[in-house]
Write a protein that binds this DNA or RNA. Sequence first.
DNA 1: GCGACAG
DNA 2: ATCTTGTCGC
Length: 237
Amino acid sequence: MHVPHLHDWPATEAAAVALQHALAGRVNTSRPLGRVELIAGCDIAYHLTEPRLFACVVVLRAKDLSVVEEVAVTREVTFPYIPGLLSFREIPALLAAFAELRQAPDAVMLDGQGIAHPRRFGLACHLGLWLDRPCVGCAKSWLVGDCAEPGPSAGDAAPLTIGGEEVGAVVRAAAGAKPVYVSPGHNVDVASATGLVRATLSGYRHPAPTRAAHMAANRARGATGGQCGSPSEGHKS
DNA sequence: GCGACAG
DNA sequence: ATCTTGTCGC
């Protein structure tokens, strides 16, 4: 799919924060999600010893959650991990992966926060702006906000708020599993973001799109990234 | 007194 | 994110 240029990449933490403030105002989380036939899940796996990462995008048919396309790319890590600035580390590679996609998905889901972010500009917001497409954040852990423990059953959810404002939901994707933190990234409202996650539950801790992407990313790494041979039988020098 | 920091 | 073995439960 075609990915238009949005901005150049900042090299410093201060510049990145400034860019977040500048772009946050362009995020739209007031619109319900329209028809979703194709949904993309994306994730990244890191090389075990080198500063390199593997970005993967998996497109699923919303109807039956079957995989229709998958693409993986590898890139050099160019930005450090700083809580609140994750997108600057992972988006460049994700964009490269999306650029190789044959079909443009109707919605995107990823591991990370949307507006449930200190500056209301999490990974899902940033990627959503770049792709100019509905994007939902589905993180494995808390970053900001207040919430209650969701019910014990799959699909149970509790609102996630910041200063009284509802920014997302904590969703139990599977009974007996730790909940997931959902928040809209761009071109989706809180209800639709939560609805999309609940509509793609597959019996595991993570919804199908993000789960498939996570596995695909690890597979991509395995082909060239992971260590080879056992630690004890490595070449001696 | 204060204290969750995405991946 | 990544390292890590066995183990408890369906």
